[in-house]
Amino acid sequence: MSRFIVIGERIHCISPSIRRALAERNPQPILQRAKEQLEAGADYLDFNIGPAERDGEEIMSWGVELIQKEFDNVPLALDTVNKKAIEAGLKVYNREKGKPIINSADAGDRIEMIDLAATNDAMVIALCAKEGIPRDNEERIAYCTELLERAMALGLDPNDILFDPLFLVIKGMQEKQVEVLEAIGMISEMGLRTTGGLSNISNGAPKELRPILDSATVAMGIQCGLTSAIVNPCDKRLMETIKSCDVIKGNILYADSFLDL
């Protein structure tokens, strides 16, 4: 099995400093967060520009070039609902270190992101959802299958799709947690890869509890087959947990200094 893939979530327009940096085309705050995440061990960086309806194309291509140029063509997840912005980002993306990931498609309005991935030989995160939160796993798997069939009809390699079962917040949807883990298991049993916005689960919990909840969830998810997640790589406990899980699963060879790598 391959090592767990860490997609760093910290360049996100929900953060005021990033939103401002995007608006002003100010490289510094973006590069700073990219650096921190890479040093903490991120494999991919998510670049979230929000809906960016007005100048999405320009922002996306500016940011992709900026980050890749500074950090040796680090692979990126291009994160927006704006299809034209994704296309603009893909045009300037350098594939030397890995394919771009389109974040994200779903079985609803955003299903055409699958087509975009197929045409551009990109990877894509496929949300097993249509409108809002899927009712149960039957619905999740139905969406998963729908997305998979569309992708395969277009010639997209199933390995290039990361299925997202939609992690749900513990505080408020505690009774849904096991279901999400089971969904990961079901998708993995089909031989497919998975990912998800892990930090969702600890939303609203006290700051000091979030690393604990995130770590426990990722460990349980990995045991169910989770192959990657969109996380905060600067969370030391979480990264230590992921590395330990990789050792236990035999994805990396143990050495006393394995946490240093």
Partner: peptide
């Protein structure tokens, strides 16, 4: 010792 082989390489590199 496969684990020591890896560890020693890491240490020498560090």
């Amino acid at each position: 010792d496969i684990n020591l082989a890896k560890q020693l390489n890491i240490l020498i590199n560090q």
